[in-house]
């Protein structure tokens, strides 16, 4: 159980969870920037941009962490994944490019005014492209449709498009759209807070419906995954995710925002962990096991020594970052603005 490759798989899963819980909320910010409507839409957009500003680059690095951990610890798996999933990953990359650049441009070019509407729309559209494509790519590993011939991957060009992965892409979108407004409720008050609360409840319902639909779809389109998910390995996570999601909804409804935020993050964490547990012990379900994909033991132990040192440096720095920017960014800004 506690083999090096399982621990490394745990690191990949952790990176994926961190990227979704933190980076996903940033994408969700983009989605709601596009969907925001009503009298307070400008304030909603403003709030989202302000919240994302100081942290999006840091959040984004979790994705690099996932990629690097994959090719260090699972070089064969990485090669297979990136060969078979070329198209969705390219789409995700284009979205990442535009989102990052458009966000930075918007932020720094805002005082000129003229670029903002165009930039903001690219930012929003790109935000939808990336979680959808990544959701498809991740769920495609659970379809069992990637073929190996003589140890090399032989993918059909469009195998990654199917009912299961399409719903997977939508789940990716819904996760992002779910997290962002719920995180925003903690940072806002009054009417604006209520708007975000409403958005969070809507997205929560959508996410709940989509993940529920994904199970029967998986039975048809990804049968091995479905059977493992509903067996003893995956079922506890599914149950906990459902429980946590329902708790988050109740907390939102009753305006316990801080706790709702924690429950929402837990729901997403449990959803991803549940997916990963149903994949275990494979990297590509039924086709490539973690053990077969793993790097030599010397690499894995070197990787963990780096990981430990890295975490010792990173955790205090990250805590300092989030502690410094807790709550509303720059609450004192309006006063200084007049000076």
């Amino acid at each position: 159980m506690w083999t090096l490759e399982n621990l490394a798989a745990g690191a990949v899963c952790l990176g994926l969870v961190m990227y979704t819980v933190f980076g996903g909320a940033d994408f969700g910010g983009g989605i709601w920037t596009a969907l925001a409507s009503g009298p307070r839409a400008p304030e909603e957009r403003e709030g989202l941009f302000n919240a994302i500003g100081p942290v999006w680059e840091t959040n984004h690095i979790w994705l690099i962490f996932v990629v690097v951990t994959l090719f260090t610890a699972f070089p064969r798996g990485f090669a297979a994944l990136f060969t078979a999933l070329l198209v969705p990953l390219v789409i995700a990359l284009i979205g990442i490019n535009f989102r990052g650049a458009a966000f930075a441009f918007r932020h720094f070019g805002r005082q000129t005014g003229k670029h903002i509407p165009f930039m903001a729309s690219i930012f929003a559209v790109a935000s939808m492209l990336t979680p959808f494509a990544l959701g498809m790519a991740v769920t495609a590993t659970a379809t069992g449709k990637i073929d190996f011939v003589n140890g090399w991957v032989q993918a059909e060009a469009w195998f990654w498009i199917g009912p299961f992965t399409l719903v997977g892409g939508l789940v990716g979108l819904a996760i992002c759209a779910y997290l962002a407004p719920i995180y925003m409720t903690v940072r806002t008050e009054g009417e604006l807070q209520n708007d975000f609360r409403r958005q969070g409840i809507i997205a929560g319902l959508v996410l709940g419906i989509l993940t529920t639909v994904e199970i029967p779809v998986a039975m048809v389109d990804a049968p091995l995954f479905a059977s493992r998910l509903l067996a003893s390995k995956g079922a506890p996570f599914v149950a906990m995710a459902v429980l946590s999601g329902a708790t988050a909804m109740v907390l939102l409804w009753r305006c316990r925002f801080l706790w709702a935020q924690i429950a929402a993050a837990a729901t997403v964490t449990l959803t991803i962990t549940g997916f990963a547990s149903a994949m275990y012990p494979d990297l590509l379900i039924g086709q490539l096991s973690l053990a077969a994909a793993a790097a030599p033991a010397a690499t894995l132990s070197a990787f963990f020594s780096v990981l430990v040192i890295g975490i010792i440096i990173l955790v205090p720095s990250l805590l300092f970052l989030y502690w410094t920017f807790r709550g509303e960014p720059n609450p004192e800004l309006p006063r200084l603005w007049r000076d």
Partner: peptide
């Protein structure tokens, strides 16, 4: 990458942490 990942993955992992910082 399948060939070199076990070898050059390490500096990339370390670089990732440096970049994070």
């Amino acid at each position: 990458m399948a060939f070199s990942g076990p070898l050059i993955g390490l500096p990339f992992s370390m670089e990732g942490f440096a970049f994070f910082t």
